[in-house]
Simulated scan of single mutants.
Amino acid sequence: MSSYDRRKFIRTATITGVGLGLAGRASSLFAGTPATPGKRVGIIGLDTSHSVEFSKMLNAVNADPAYNGFKVTAAYVQGSKDITSSLEMVPGNLAKIKELGIEIVDSIAALLEKTDVILLESNDGRVHLEQALPVFKAGKRVFIDKPIAASLADTRAIFKAAEKYKVPVFSSSALRFIDSIQQVAQGKIGKVTGADVYTPSPTEKTHPDLFWYGIHGVEMLFALMGTGCHRVTRITSEDMDVVTGVWKDGRIGTLRGVRKGPYGFGGHAFGEKGIAPIGDFSSYQPLVLQITAFFQTGIPPVKPEETIEMMAFMEAADESKKKKGATVTMNV
């Protein structure tokens, strides 16, 4: 594991706003109106801070009306079975979830009986396919937190199963929805001709390098560039990676993954009408708004094809590393 500490980053990137960061204070802050039928949210996996932060946002007394009344009512603890950094987070997160009055159940089956939609929050992408299958079979809409899986093969299997059971699903990093990226997506600089982004990129031995944390930057890059990448080259050192993607229309996008030194998220997008700086992370709210809109409508804000291509991009980057920086054609 690199000198980056995922939990240290989460503590640094503190959420601001009423009702957030207030664990341990009066429970009345989160004693809002009980969820109505159809609005009950279940959580799978308490090995990530997202489970707590999303619950605080949805269950606050003065929760944003744009959340459409969705509230977390039950949670299943099991996430990763063997990643130490994830397992160490469970006791603290479990205590905070209980403080919010959220029921703890002993199985995914029990969770599905008590809830209407699912936040699959397990930190370990390797368990996502196994945990998502019963959700699909139950016909419940599900958001799968990043990474959607720990391999391209499992990613394809997840979407194939969702299609089989006709259940909407999507996966995303919160970084995709930061304001500076959304402004570019809405045409601020015209057609995007290229992009350079940077991201913290600590690694975890159970996942391909970029899948564990660098995926945040990959989401940023693809949110700016869109699909169509077909060639990937990765230059790597002990402390840093630079991954270059060439799109089929000739555009170039780069990702700098930082494992040591000052960290943050950012970059620049280049367009026909200007150059836009890409800002840092500030809040989970834009992502939670997208999730609750998805729960309400069943329309995923990120298409399966884009998520699949991002996973192919990261696998190609790993293959390029193994080949000492050779260019790799993506398997999409």
Rank of each mutant, 00 (worst) to 15 (best):
E121K: 10
M220L: 03
T233M: 13
M314S: 09
T33Q: 15
I83A: 03
F222R: 02
M89I: 11
P168H: 08
G45P: 01
V72S: 04
H216T: 04
V197H: 12
S173Y: 09
L152F: 14
T292I: 12
P147W: 12
M311Y: 15
T73E: 10
K8D: 15
E130Y: 09
N68S: 15
S180D: 07
K140G: 05
A23C: 07
G101I: 07
S171W: 08
Q78F: 07
K260D: 01
L100I: 07
L46W: 02
L224K: 01
V288T: 13
K137N: 02
L94W: 03
R234K: 10
A35K: 00
R234T: 15
K39W: 05
E204G: 03
G264R: 11
A109C: 03
T199N: 05
A75P: 07
F143D: 04
E103N: 12
P91W: 03
I178H: 01
T236N: 08
K164S: 09
A174N: 04
V90I: 15
V232W: 04
G21K: 10
L111H: 13
H128A: 05
A293S: 15
G69L: 07
G32N: 03
F313C: 03
L133P: 02
P34S: 01
F211W: 06
I102K: 06
S237K: 08
V167S: 07
S28A: 15
S180Y: 06
A153S: 13
G42Y: 00
K146Y: 13
A223I: 02
F136P: 06
V242D: 02
I97R: 00
T115E: 05
S107Q: 03
I144F: 10
I235F: 12
A293M: 10
A312V: 09
S151Q: 09
F177S: 02
G101H: 06
S171E: 09
L287F: 07
R11G: 05
I108M: 07
D106C: 06
K98H: 06
K191C: 07
Q78K: 14
G217H: 09
M57S: 14
D47M: 06
S172H: 06
G261K: 08
A312I: 02
A35I: 01
Y213K: 01
T203D: 05
A161R: 13
L152T: 13
N123W: 10
V197C: 10
G19E: 09
D249Y: 05
M240G: 00
S172G: 02
H207T: 00
L94A: 11
K164H: 14
L287V: 04
H230R: 07
G253M: 08
V332Y: 05
V77M: 10
V184Q: 04
A66K: 14
Q290M: 12
R40M: 00
F170Q: 07
E53L: 12
D106A: 11
T36K: 15
V77L: 11
E309D: 03
Q290I: 05
V41N: 00
E103R: 15
V61Y: 14
I44N: 00
G245F: 00
V197K: 13
I148R: 03
I44Q: 00
R141C: 04
G245E: 01
V105M: 10
F294M: 02
